[in-house]
Design a protein around this nucleic acid. Structure first.
Lengths: 179, 179
DNA sequence: TATCATCTGGGACGTTCGTACTAGTACAGA
DNA sequence: TCTGTACTAGTACGAACGTCCCAGATGATA
């Protein structure tokens, strides 16, 4: 096989992310990841010494991508005329285009509840959203909106339904008055 | 051993609930539940044919207890003078006294995202909160507050910190204006 | 008291898992 | 060109798992 260590590592991470989104972090196995990435089992243990490290690295990989997205949000919100409507649109798009990220985010949240070593990563993910909002809506409101949006995403995952953008915009607008 | 089939079944369910809260539904095993409940492995498979059935039954058991709690909430909110403050107090108490329920609730939400057969239970759990709120705040606001509170609980689990009751009351008050 | 379905306690089987290991291959630097 | 490190591919092994099974104990019913 053609040599491409970095690419291989990345393929393994992406396979792991896809599996976490599909079946949950608890169902992750070396073999499933290897099969998904199209590499032998030995490859996943070569690049990630333990299953735990593989899972954590995969979540960190997703968190990095999401952090990039959060920076785009910050720009969009900073430039927005109608902040609530913009936020609502961003969330709707996020859930439509990046459902796996959202799934991994909540897998991370729940896993962090009983695995303290994951908490910094979970808190950082959450804080990314707050940071995107803060410049326009004040710190307390930004926190409230962040928490609300996490609830919205969780609700959307459970109900597997698109969010109501108007409802969302009105709720965000209401929370923005907090500061 | 003294005969008490119903008690035994309940002990197994409670052990399973405790384990789900502690380590997540993905880490549940017949053997761990049996050890926790103080019964042989055969007992858990006797009362619950498959591990899946055991996990689902345990979540359903927790959901039932939570539904009872939701009815108490409804009464408390119906009788409240200051609804936002009451809701904030209820949530704070809930997180302090019933952290396991809250953990199981979110385990359920995330599991429901990739296991459609769990969705009715997850939706019912969420709707319980909405129903407790609806009589006092309109339907849209009740939904918004429910979603917000789920976000708050998730955030509290991740940060392992008590919620700020004042912040919470103000956010709830803001969302109550939605209808 | 005799009977029988229900429940108990524990062990057995086959599968899947994490991880370690080995032999071979490719490529960068001497 | 030679050499050693980094990587590949596949196998092996012990542990833990879900589930099945059965011999014995129990208690309601006849």
């Amino acid at each position: 096989m053609a040599r491409d260590p970095e690419g291989r590592r990345l393929r393994i991470l992406e396979a792991a992310c896809a599996l976490i989104a599909e079946t949950g972090v608890g169902a992750l196995t070396h073999r499933a990841v290897a099969a998904r990435a199209g590499v032998p089992v030995g490859a996943t243990t070569y690049y990630f010494a333990t299953l735990d490290e593989l899972a954590t690295s995969a979540i960190a990989h997703a968190a990095e991508l999401a952090a990039g997205e959060a920076r785009l949000w910050q720009e969009a919100i900073a430039a927005a005329e109608d902040v609530p409507a913009t936020v609502a649109a961003l969330i709707a798009d996020y859930l439509a285009d990046h459902r796996p990220w959202s799934l991994i985010e909540h897998e991370l949240y729940v896993a962090a509840a009983h695995r303290p070593e994951l908490r910094p990563m979970a808190i950082a993910w959450s804080d990314g959203t707050t940071a995107a909002l803060s410049p326009r809506v004040g710190p307390a409101a930004a926190r409230a909106v962040t928490v609300f949006l996490d609830g919205v995403m969780l609700d959307a995952l459970v109900r597997d339904a698109p969010v109501d953008a108007d409802f969302l915009a009105r709720a965000v607008a209401a929370l923005m008055g907090l500061d």
